[in-house]
């Protein structure tokens, strides 16, 4: 008996599952739990791997077509012909507001802000993102001010009962407006920071999440077990959690180093090179790759401005046992042989 393709597909759901996983990985923010689920699925059967490879090959091929411009024009043309009412739902009102960002980091500095938004809280999360090498201030409707480091992104959702901010990537400094009956939760990977009104920075790195408090106090919890994973931090303290929300360390924070990016500087005292490069890559179009575990874990003590990133990278071989090589689209730092 010969089965039709549709019958085969019905018997073997691998292809449909593979396409669904591919879409989720490419077009959504996977949680640590989802990643674990995907990895388990991929390893469960050779058919799963084969189906995923096939779906991925199609995905890649789309970017190789000569028709890209035509397709994009078609989509934009149809949108222009039928504009979505959603785009006019918000009417931002331009104004300027002067704020001071965390006394410990910039006691004498004040930032002039624009684009203060008024209006009812949105039903859907609002997304705010900074570009490469852009430090961006985002005033929220409740009076909270976010400062985004380069290539950082947050989603903000306010309801009557709580204020939720998800740090999708990068580093953000939160100057939270005090609202005793309107708590705020900041989430980065599976780590949550609970506050009512305070100032703190959160850095979402490739290996961990770091919270450093400059004013007031916060409660840091992991996703898995609220009771056992909570740590209370006061001004001058920091905590580090892995991407699954397990709190790895807490202690005194080097606030000046931790939040130096607000002033356009990078300051490190014994930081791992992987963390330094995570930060630097958010300010660089041509990305830096670290080749090998030994290189990633090199301890770095340095200080440089955003304009000196290239000098920092090219100077690495002088101070550390590494080589730096350039390809067309990336810079590679590898262990010296």
């Amino acid at each position: 008996m010969t089965l039709e393709p549709q019958q085969l597909d019905a018997q073997d759901p691998s292809h449909q599952e593979a396409r669904e996983w591919l879409g989720r990985i490419q077009a959504s923010e996977l949680t640590a739990a989802s990643r674990a689920e995907f990895e388990q699925w991929l390893q469960a059967s050779p058919a799963h791997r084969s189906a995923f490879e096939r779906a991925h090959a199609v995905w890649s091929l789309i970017g190789h077509s000569d028709q890209i411009e035509t397709w994009v024009n078609e989509v934009d043309g149809s949108r222009a012909a039928a504009p979505d009412a959603r785009s006019s739902r918000w009417q931002p009102l331009l104004t300027t507001r002067r704020i001071a960002i965390g006394a410990a980091v910039a006691a004498s500095a004040a930032l002039f802000l624009s684009m203060l938004r008024f209006g009812p809280p949105p039903a859907e999360p609002q997304r705010f993102a900074s570009g490469i090498a852009e430090t961006k201030t985002v005033p929220l409707a409740d009076g909270t001010v976010l400062t985004l480091a380069g290539s950082s992104e947050v989603k903000v959702a306010f309801t009557d009962k709580k204020r939720s901010v998800e740090l999708v990537q990068g580093s953000v400094f939160f100057d939270v407006a005090a609202k005793a009956d309107w708590p705020m939760t900041v989430t980065a990977a599976d780590t949550h920071v609970h506050v009512t009104g305070t100032a703190f920075g959160v850095r979402y790195g490739s290996r961990d999440v770091r919270v450093a408090v400059t004013e007031g106090k916060v409660l840091v919890t992991g996703a898995a077990d609220f009771a056992s994973q909570s740590v209370a931090l006061v001004a001058g303290e920091q905590a580090t959690a892995d991407l699954r929300g397990t709190i790895l360390a807490r202690g005194q924070a080097n606030i000046e180093a931790e939040l130096a990016w607000i002033k356009g500087r990078f300051v490190y005292d014994g930081a791992r090179l992987v963390d330094v490069i995570d930060d630097v890559n958010r300010y660089r179009l041509k990305k830096i790759e670290l080749d090998g575990e030994r290189v990633r874990d090199l301890k770095i003590t340095t200080s440089f401005g955003a304009a000196q990133i290239d000098q920092f990278v090219s100077g690495l071989p002088l101070a550390y046992p590494v080589n730096v090589s350039e390809t067309l689209d990336k810079t590679v730092v590898s262990a010296r042989r």
Partner: peptide
């Protein structure tokens, strides 16, 4: 076609497209 263009070529997320 619009969803393919937005996800694959513009790098948009499901959430952004939904919005």
């Amino acid at each position: 076609r619009e969803i393919v263009v937005r996800t694959r070529l513009k790098g948009e997320t499901y959430a952004r497209i939904s919005q």
